[in-house]
Design a binder for these strands. Structure first.
Lengths: 221, 221
DNA sequence: CGCACTTTTCGTACGCGTACTGAAAGTACA
DNA sequence: TGTACTTTCAGTACGCGTACGAAAAGTGCG
């Protein structure tokens, strides 16, 4: 009787030993000493397996004391989850698996905190979910793009076909922007997530609850 | 002598005939009447192949007349590209391929227009790329999350393990938000991209060029 | 107990992407 | 012409995820 917990434990063991790229259903089954297809009775998919692993991880994100101001609390929460995902080397790979995206909502705490923060700020519950969803859009995209940028090779030489980002830019038409690719790479090296996140949240709250969000920040529902 | 163009043409033919899920290197080689591995001389990867296909598509997005106001132009451009990607049934699949994310920058026109718009609005070139990048984050995330939501099954019955979004929510702790999953699904059915995009752009521009962005919209560099 | 039914296990097989190897064809120069 | 080198092609093989179906083990009931 192989349990889900044992499977996850074995998976973590395999990953720690050989790296996550080598994690495969077949190897995992071998590690557990069971037949390959037996695994499919405890786990629907390989995707499902990864989902379980990352959900477990996301639920372990520490929950420090958060700022009292609702808006700051929202931002701090999202930033915390973002940082956890960005630090998790498999996150981007798993996020890109179709069917997973959007499910990190199961990391209950993040949903709770962000939605509650938006309500505290004066949003209706519907608007609060709306806010959460947009934050989630932005977070997913940022992590994926960041992960991609991190995997880009060193950009030395190597012509034509496999050229990196923005190689297709028609430089003659945009002479003032020839450095755009470099700027992109510079940004890749920086942690710009918090700024964009704050811009997004500010913009959303201004749309949804203009009167409240205009005031300095003394209100605190 | 099999050329890149012939390969892409054959790929499109295959996709039109059998659907894109059935596109494989082996089948494509067969369609072309060449050996499987020969394909790898014209295309680095399967990923590379998909990249070529979608870049081709993205470059065909029509370029209508855009609003004169820089901010509106930025938003209209991003929305146009977003809609094109959202309408392209393979887009989400391809976007999730690690290594592609971030490369749609090769759809030159979008980059040009957004960056130029931000500069028109008063940003420095560096800030303009910054703006573009954040828009791109948001767009990628939105498309992926949307694509996932679209693939979700009908939500009828089916307990415990494979339950859909937010099933993990601890409802006893958040009794006022039991409907959060439904709200999420409601949002999935709506096109909320433009609102979030506008919120993001407004927020970013307010951060970067506060004095300009505060004024109604008469300036037009 | 026997018997029916469900759950759990696993062997086999398919198609996949692609690493590796080496043959074939094209090209340049003596 | 022959010879050396480069480009293009293909066969074979590996490990992968997983569909399918058969076997085995567990369970309830007469």
């Amino acid at each position: 009787m192989t349990s889900r917990a044992q499977i996850l434990e074995a998976a973590r063991r395999l990953i720690d030993r050989d790296g996550w790229e080598k994690l495969s259903i077949r190897r995992l089954a071998a590690e557990l000493g069971i037949g390959t297809m037996t695994l499919y009775h405890h786990v629907r998919d390989k995707e499902d397996l990864l989902l379980l692993l990352i959900t477990e991880y996301a639920d372990q994100v520490p929950r420090p004391d958060l700022p009292g101001d609702p808006r700051d609390r929202i931002i701090a929460t999202a930033a915390l989850v973002h940082d956890a995902l960005a630090a998790w080397p498999w996150a981007a790979e798993v996020l890109t698996v179709d069917g997973f995206v959007g499910r990190l909502g199961e990391s209950v705490w993040m949903v709770e905190t962000i939605v509650a923060g938006a309500i505290d700020h004066g949003c209706t519950p519907e608007q609060a979910v709306h806010v959460f969803r947009h934050i989630w859009y932005y977070t997913v995209g940022e992590i994926l793009v960041r992960a991609h940028s991190a995997h880009q090779p060193a950009e030395d030489g190597r012509p034509a076909d496999q050229a990196p980002l923005f190689s297709g830019l028609d430089r003659s038409r945009m002479p003032s922007l020839v450095a755009i690719g470099d700027q992109w790479r510079t940004l890749s090296a920086q942690d710009t997530y918090p700024q964009g996140l704050r811009a997004l949240v500010d913009g959303l709250l201004a749309q949804l609850a203009p009167e409240t969000s205009r005031k300095p920040r003394s209100i605190r529902s």
